[in-house]
Amino acid sequence: MADSDERETRRLVRRVRSFAAAHGGRAEGQISYLGTRGYRLVLVGADGGWGDLVSRSRDALTHAAERSNVPLHEAFDGELAARVRTGAYEWKRMAGIQIGGAGRGH
């Protein structure tokens, strides 16, 4: 692994571990391709809280999850998706997107 990849992985490990600690001590995740931006690791904590990290390197995200003892799922569906807990902000934002309101970032 190149030095820059290792630095990126270490940075991601710190963020993954911090997320897990703040959300019940453990997390699970799923990596998806974003196109030219790279890859997105969605994390779901033991408490249902969720967050994400983006990197140009799928390998860096995969290694960060492995080093943080975060199991990775093939898809963001089923049991993993069912554990996500959303709050009023997310529901309001989703409703705004659906009806063309402020949630669209205008």
Score class of each variant (00 low, 15 high):
G35Y: 07
A88M: 02
D52V: 00
D5V: 03
R7P: 00
R83H: 07
I99H: 11
L12K: 00
R56H: 09
Q98Y: 08
D59Q: 13
A21D: 10
L43K: 00
I99L: 10
D3Y: 02
G105I: 12
H106V: 11
A102D: 10
V84A: 11
E8D: 12
F19K: 02
F19G: 03
I99P: 00
A46S: 14
R17V: 05
S68M: 10
T62I: 05
S57W: 00
R93I: 05
D77Y: 09
A88H: 01
S4M: 02
G105C: 12
R26H: 06
A95Q: 06
G25S: 01
R17E: 13
A82P: 04
P71L: 11
A27I: 00
A2R: 14
L53C: 04
R104K: 13
E28G: 07
T62M: 09
D52K: 08
R58V: 09
A65S: 14
A27P: 03
A81T: 02
A2Y: 08
R15V: 02
G105W: 08
T86P: 00
I31W: 04
H106N: 11
Q30N: 09
E6Q: 03
F19Y: 12
W50L: 02
L34N: 02
R26P: 01
H106E: 14
E6C: 01
E79S: 15
A21S: 11
E74L: 14
A64W: 01
G24N: 05
F19S: 01
D52H: 09
T36G: 01
D47Q: 09
K92T: 13
R11F: 04
V84S: 07
S4P: 00
D3P: 05
I99Q: 10
A22P: 02
H23N: 15
R11M: 11
R67Q: 14
A75W: 09
G78I: 08
G87F: 04
R7K: 11
Y89V: 12
Y89A: 14
L12T: 02
A21W: 03
R85Q: 15
P71V: 11
V44E: 00
R7Q: 08
A22H: 10
A2V: 06
H106K: 09
F19M: 10
E66C: 06
Q30S: 04
R104M: 12
A95L: 11
R58L: 07
R93C: 01
V84R: 13
A65G: 13
E66L: 15
G35C: 13
E74D: 15
G48Y: 04
L43D: 02
R15A: 10
D59G: 13
R15D: 04
A82W: 06
D77R: 15
L41T: 03
R14L: 03
W91P: 00
V84W: 09
A81W: 05
A102N: 08
A22K: 12
V42G: 07
R37D: 15
P71W: 13
A46G: 10
G25R: 00
L34P: 01
D3M: 05
E66K: 15
H106L: 12
F19A: 08
G49D: 12
R10Y: 04
Y39S: 07
G101I: 02
A81C: 01
G105H: 07
R67W: 11
W50F: 15
A75L: 07
G87V: 03
G29I: 00
